[in-house]
Design a binder for these strands. Structure first.
Lengths: 344, 344
DNA sequence: CGACTTAATGTTAGCGCTAGCACAAAGCAT
DNA sequence: ATGCTTTGTGCTAGCGCTAACATTAAGTCG
């Protein structure tokens, strides 16, 4: 028999442990554990003794230890490109709502639209034993792709339906949405259509929207001019600037489709400031259906996307996958809605 | 001698462990651990052998186990009222920037402006062994206060300087900011001033702003009328509605100070839509200095708050506290700036 | 060249919890 | 009474990692 624990606890937090509770309640540690996690398996009387012991010593469970022992962390990770664009934070809010109801926590990463940073975050979250992860889009580094492919780890991609992540994709067709908008503009009689995109590099949503615009222009026999296809950062100011740049380069332009409401709203505000009439002189369309689209004058034609639901559905799929396994990879097309208002 | 491990691993992930790496590298587990965490203590040659073994077996560290063994999680928690208001997400972005540089991760909670939910989140984050927490404001439930008081756990409060959290407060004086804005309006000659606040219940920022407005009105000898002190939810639409409601109740009102730019912007947009001239018929002031304040017409007078820095400083304080201890509780007044533009 | 540091690696004993069984006591049919 | 389930509780052995100490092989110095 080895001689041990001669001098009590050598390391540790100093916070009370399960054993402390067990000792003051006069039961074993496992009983306390059960009283907390599966109370129906503990006699009412014992439960009460344990409860008062917990209160007495001020016990707070150590989930890190519990996670290690049970190989479950009840943690889901999410990586978004930025926290400064409300479409992503609203999606996160949807996720958090569902996760919290189901007793899961969110660990959050923001990649800054950089897939290498995304890869690094993925590795961190793997190391932290997140039980699943929500990614934005389906463009990732090769290494990340390979890692995810060989790992049997629940992954959901959002905002896009192009990838084949282990659990599924939750999104809508960015291509179709952009196509529909151009079709709408054409039906309204606009022929000289410009498109202002987000940066498309490593961003499949933006790339798909651009593809949709191009295809629609071609199908409808409308002219596509390079000077009218621009990329821009996301800000109100940049929206106004893009409008001016396009009008300077191609004065005959009669409609501009922006890949984000923020840009489109900036353009409408700037147009009004400069006495340019919307939609008579120039039509403006956006993408997202943020609140500003409804209160701006004229109200903005845009594409409504179910950002809250994107988060909710992604979270549910992932929880389902952690609890009942997964395979194949479902595709949840949550659709979009063309909302026609006064700006076109 | 006890007979054990007759049939190998009984539970576990199936992912390779430190031991697997150690075995293929022909060294002990602790050497692999050191090669990863303190490479300078391992001979170059060994380091290389270990590195290739890691690559060979595809090892990903299990931080949950590491955290338990080292009693360190390198995790910081943050609780914000909502993710749907960019001032908070920008603060979080500031936090994430600093945390990631220092090798910390963020666990995020959103309380929905409900301090009971906040309390529940605090307990969860304690249980998850977060090394510190960033809270919004200094209103918490009694139980949360007591828990935090007796726990010797690093806590930083943001957006307010009123509390005495264990590590410190990072914010500015909401009272002074509101006071200054009213003073500015008075100097501009406005005398019939209205104030639209966020809900003040359990929200010390809103309560302080209201107090500042009241005090300023009193000090400056301006009339305070109950019909002109309103609370409102946060939205563009609600801003416009508040403006109408105030003008209906008190037609002589010549200036409205909104506790958020979103509200003020909604009011300006609505005013333009209705042909109400800003600032001639009614002056509008906001709070936050969001981008829209600069591009709207007229540009908006508002209070600039250092939201990104709030997050950065809070994160740094907390990291410092986890590494070198803490005591007392510092107060970092990051200040605010009255930005006067055309709307007043 | 023996005592003494330094560098590199290994051994042991947990961190605080839970899975999997073992076991006692009680209920229930036969 | 016998066997057989059910209920409540406890014991043992880890989960995968790291702190603390132990050990060995090289330098280092007067």
């Amino acid at each position: 028999m080895t001689q041990r624990s001669q001098r009590g606890r050598r390391r540790g937090h100093g916070r009370p442990t399960l054993d402390d509770v067990a000792r003051t309640a006069g039961v074993s540690a496992i009983t306390v554990s059960r009283a907390l996690r599966t109370p129906e398996k503990v006699a009412r009387e014992t439960r009460e003794v344990v409860a008062s012991a917990i209160a007495k010593v001020g016990y707070i469970p150590n989930l890190v230890a519990g996670n290690l022992a049970s190989i479950k962390t009840r943690t889901i990770a999410a990586i978004v490109p930025t926290l400064e664009h409300s479409i992503f934070t609203e999606m996160l809010q949807g996720m958090v709502d569902v996760l919290r109801d189901e007793g899961f926590e969110l660990i959050l990463g923001s990649s800054g639209f950089d897939i290498r940073e995304e890869e690094s975050l993925i590795k961190t979250f793997l190391a932290r034993q997140a039980e699943g992860i929500v990614l934005t889009g389906s463009f990732h580094t090769d290494e990340a792709q390979q890692l995810l492919a060989r790992l049997d780890w629940p992954v959901v991609e959002t905002w896009s339906l192009l990838g084949t992540p282990s659990v599924g994709s939750v999104g809508f067709s960015n291509y179709d949405a952009a196509y529909e908008m151009v079709k709408h503009l054409a039906e309204r009689g606009y022929r000289e259509i410009a498109f202002v995109s987000a940066v498309t590099e490593a961003n499949d949503r933006a790339a798909e929207r651009l593809r949709g615009v191009r295809r629609a222009l071609a199908d409808l026999g409308l002219p596509e001019r390079a000077e009218r296809i621009r990329t821009s950062e996301f800000s109100l100011r940049a929206g106004g600037e893009s409008m001016h740049a396009i009008r300077a380069a191609c004065p005959e332009t009669d409609a501009i489709f922006f890949a984000a409401d923020t840009l489109a709203a900036g353009a409408i505000l700037e147009a009004k400031k400069c006495g340019i009439s919307v939609p008579d002189e120039i039509a403006i369309a956006g993408f997202d259906d943020l609140e500003i689209a409804t209160v701006i004058d004229p109200p903005m034609t845009t594409v409504r996307v179910p950002r809250r639901d994107l988060g909710r559905v992604a979270a549910r799929l992932l929880i389902e996958a952690t609890e009942h396994g997964f395979g194949g990879g479902v595709q949840r097309d949550l659709g979009f809605e063309l909302v026609v208002r006064g700006s076109t």
